Computed example of a mutant assay.
Amino acid sequence: MILGLFRSGAIRLGARQGAGWGRVVPDGEHFWSLKSFAPDDAAALKSWLGEGQADQADIQPLDCSGYAPTRITITWSTPTGVFVAEPGLSKKQQAERNARRNSPETITEGKDQQYTPSVPLRADGTKWPEEAKERANASARSQLVLPGSSVRGALRTRASRIARTVLVGALGQELEDWSDPTVGVHDQLASDPSLVRDLFGTTEHRGALTVLDTVTRRVRKNPRRVTHNAGDRWTGGAAEGALYGEELWDQAWEPIVIELDSKRLLSTGAHSPERSLDRAKAAWCLLGLVLAELATGTLPLGSRGTRGLGQVEVSKIRISGIDWLGTEDGRGGREFRKRSDSPASGQAVARDLLTWLQEVNASITDNEAGGVTDITGWSTYLVESVKEDADA
């Protein structure tokens, strides 16, 4: 079975598996060797240890092929630019800025104009997904990267916000306050509703969702610098020597690729197959709502979102491998396109997606909410998560 899993490409090693890293591809058709020996006596054991000889044994890997994850491909652009800072240079920038602030020359005219801008994260040494690798140009080291972990974090935050909003409206009670400084990030992940944990996981187990790293198609030679000045909390004006900013490249990006392990999603929880399918459909509806908000342009990506960066315009969402939903789409999938060249046409993509999600939501048969009469369909399983936590 292990050999069969290696051959099918299902084995992943190392960290950042949620961003598509760590995939192992066997080298050749017969990538394994199996040997056996019989240490019947001291001489046989000494011979094997000394010469390493053993009898060749035969083994056949199980057939673990025939499974492909659900794939969501999002064609998008950004009118403002997407920025994810290089962490090493950000620390250097902070150190230099602190040194300038403590220097007596800081107030000298013109000195406050010198600062080290934050630069975007580059794809140096990155192992690309095959789709991006085929289109990568010769100057791959100059490509910028939008990490899958960054996109995945944005999607999880919005999914958690939607789920918690539904729970507050349905149950009429306040949920745990995450603004409490004693609540750590790991506690926040563990307290997410069950559908969010099914999709994105926790510190204890993997989720079903993987977001691959996204790279740029090309990098232009001349970036533009965006400069900011920190405010002085005492005077209310601009702080002396507190300039900071970023270097931005206006460029086109490859599509965002999201993979969903439907088998992992269907096996979550100790339920009957029918209820497990309904719970998986509920998780799919929650993910669809997040994608709809991304299509409308209300979900920024990357950092500096409060400074106007990270705006997204979605032109197409392509979904394949959704036969597990039991709909008529099968492996043909679904495709949602914008209807005009207007930036607001992403709303048309969202409307078509929401119309289809209503059909998926109507197919959920087991939607008993345990006495809560004003909540039905996919959101029933959010109420179920609260009840499971209470029982635990």
Results as ranks from 00 to 15, higher is better:
Thr235Lys: 07
Thr227Met: 09
Leu291Ala: 12
Ala163Asn: 08
Ser139Val: 08
Arg71Val: 11
Arg339Lys: 15
Leu260Tyr: 03
Tyr115Lys: 06
Thr355Val: 14
Ser315Asn: 13
Val145Gly: 05
Asp329Arg: 13
Leu248Ser: 01
Ser340Met: 00
Ala390Lys: 12
Arg331Ser: 15
Val25Pro: 01
Gln311Leu: 14
Asn367Ile: 05
Ala190Asn: 05
Ser142Lys: 13
Ser8Arg: 06
Ile72Glu: 06
Leu199Cys: 06
Asp27Leu: 03
Ser139Ile: 04
Leu354Val: 14
Val166Met: 11
Gly18Val: 02
Thr210Gly: 04
Glu246Lys: 03
Pro26Cys: 02
Thr75Arg: 09
Gly52Tyr: 13
Glu176Lys: 12
Leu294Trp: 13
Lys263Ala: 13
Gly125Ile: 01
Ser90Glu: 13
Thr157Val: 07
Asp341His: 04
Arg275Met: 07
Arg220Trp: 05
Trp234Gly: 03
Leu309Lys: 12
Gly326Phe: 13
Arg331His: 12
Lys338Asn: 12
Gln188His: 01
Lys316Pro: 02
Gln114Gly: 02
Ile162Cys: 07
Gly241Glu: 02
Thr126Ser: 09
Glu328Ala: 15
Arg275Ser: 06
Thr157Gly: 08
Leu189Gln: 11
Gly28His: 00
Pro343Trp: 08
Pro181Ser: 03
Leu49Phe: 13
Trp76Pro: 07
Gly125Phe: 00
Gly370Val: 01
Asn102Leu: 10
Leu291Lys: 09
Ser160Asp: 15
Leu299Gly: 13
Ile256Thr: 08
Ala54Ser: 09
Val360His: 08
Ala190Trp: 00
Arg351Ser: 14
Asp261Gly: 02
Leu248Val: 11
Val166Tyr: 09
